[in-house]
Amino acid sequence: MFTGLIRHLGCVRAATSSPGSGGLVLQVDIPAWPHEPILGESIAVDGCCLTVSSIEEGEAGGVSAGFDVVPGTLDRTTIGSLQPGDRVHLEPALKAGDPIGGHFVQGHVEGTGEVRSVEINGDDHRVDIVIPSGMLKLVLPRGSICVAGVSLTVSDKSEEGFTVTLVPTTLRETLLEKLQVGDRVNIETDMLVRSMAEAGGEGSS
């Protein structure tokens, strides 16, 4: 379980195919992070819950964590498009007693969205994202949504997607300021909304 509050940024060192499995081995350099990853723990990488499968010394200090990514995850997320040098959002799993500053996030990315527009007017930074209709029905205006691992509030909803307004802290602490039209981002809808929809027989399938 996560909260959608980005704790650190990592840099992709390598993304190599796993022979015979159809999956991917993702290696992420994590410099100067007070949280020390351990083997077997879960870390959200751009909102996708992955398990640390290896740890070694990082190229620029710190550590380098390896993650085995299965084909199903590659099909639903942007992980398969990552290239060496790309930066990613990182968040360790929530522990008992940790503050919950965002919203409950499972790290189970449901699919990807595409940035349709970016509007900047002074401190007002709005991003419009198109998502599949199955996910759209789980999006509520002024509700919570996770975009690339970041907990955000839905400012508006349209027939094809939704809009989020990025506050200065989000722009400063995450990579969302760099989003451009056409970029794809991992999307996870609010788990509470999903649970209610599933109970009522209206899941995202």
Rank of each mutant, 00 (worst) to 15 (best):
Met1Val: 09
Phe2Gly: 01
Thr3Ala: 11
Thr3Ile: 04
Leu5Lys: 05
Leu5Arg: 04
Ile6Lys: 01
Ala14Met: 09
Thr16Leu: 10
Thr16Trp: 00
Pro19Asp: 06
Val25Leu: 06
Val28Lys: 03
Pro31Arg: 12
Pro34Glu: 14
Gly40Trp: 09
Ser42Ile: 10
Ile43Pro: 06
Cys49Trp: 03
Thr51Gly: 02
Ala60Lys: 15
Gly62Lys: 13
Gly62Gln: 13
Val63Trp: 14
Gly66Thr: 04
Asp68Met: 04
Val69Ile: 02
Val70Ser: 14
Thr73Ser: 13
Asp75Glu: 14
Arg76Leu: 15
Gln83Asp: 04
Pro84Phe: 00
Pro84Asp: 03
Arg87His: 13
His89Lys: 04
His89Ala: 03
Glu91Cys: 04
Pro92Ser: 10
Leu94Thr: 04
Lys95Thr: 15
Ala96Ile: 07
Ala96Asp: 13
Gly97Lys: 00
Gly101Tyr: 07
Gly102Ser: 02
Gln106Ala: 12
Thr112Ile: 09
Glu114Lys: 10
Ser117Lys: 08
Ser117Ala: 14
Glu119Lys: 13
His125Met: 09
Met135Trp: 05
Val139Ser: 07
Leu140Met: 15
Leu140Cys: 15
Pro141Ser: 03
Ile145Phe: 10
Val147Ala: 11
Asp156Val: 15
Glu160His: 09
Thr163Ile: 15
Val164Ser: 02
Thr165His: 12
Leu166Asp: 00
Val167Glu: 09
Thr169Pro: 01
Glu173Asn: 02
Glu173Tyr: 05
Leu176Tyr: 05
Lys178Gly: 12
Gln180Thr: 14
Asp183Asn: 08
Asn186Tyr: 10
Glu188Asp: 09
Met191Phe: 12
Leu192Ile: 10
Arg194Phe: 14
Ala197His: 05
Gly200Asn: 07
Glu202Lys: 04
Ser204Asn: 03
Ser205Asn: 11
